[in-house]
Amino acid sequence: MNKHLKILKIFAGSSVSAQMEYRANFIVQMISSLVAFVGALLGLSVLFGDDAGLGGWSLLEAQVLVGVFLLLEGLTEVLVYPNVRKIAEMVRTGTMDFTLLKPIDSQFSVSSRNVNVFAFPNVLLGFGLMVYALIKLGNVSWTGILLSIPMLLSALTIIYCICFILITTAFWFVKVENIIELFWGFFRAGQFPITAFPAGGARILFTYIVPIAFITTVPAQALIGKISLESVLASLGIASVLFVASRLFWKFALKSYTSASS
């Protein structure tokens, strides 16, 4: 464990110093993040303009949810995305060999090699909105906050596993970098509570097939104290199953890896 923490520190350090080469981009990206943030708030005000709420969520509750969405989107951009994107490239060019030769777990190594520090402001904006809306809501319970931590971790695990499983197909199909974009496409649905969608197809899709409901709706429900025991268990269950699946799939894929030149 200690070894892994040390490695994490080295990985983070080297990837941060590499990105500092491109400082100018940071400013434009910051403006982009701020605009997206203002846009999200404007969007909420449009949807809630009539005070009728959305799928049983009040404006402030929906702001908590959008906060959760931005927080997780930011964390994905910082921690998950820069790594999974590289995996397909490593398989295609054969540099995966170097990773496999190293005496650390290969899934750990490919999943933690890079950090995108430039996306960190998104994490702060999301967290800020979440806390602000919670304070304005008032009646926040400690149970809710304590419960939200495992729910957020489980949401992040679900995101990581889906992306990781998708990109692992790179061992068989050559060009799959863009397959991750598909997940992003669906992920956008997470800025709305699952009950905002009309009953039927869309809700089933976002609960069972692409489990967006467990990524944002459930952690937000925990924070505002409207979560059911079934949701907690289902969230932890889905995250565990996906994690085991991602691990088994990775091991299976490695067996069919023959490097780029052979």
Binding site: L47, A52, G55, A196, P198
Partner: peptide, 10 residues
């Protein structure tokens, strides 16, 4: 999806 849901609820 969201706007149809909103119209139906309204």
């Amino acid at each position: 999806g969201v706007w149809i849901g909103k119209a139906q609820a309204n």
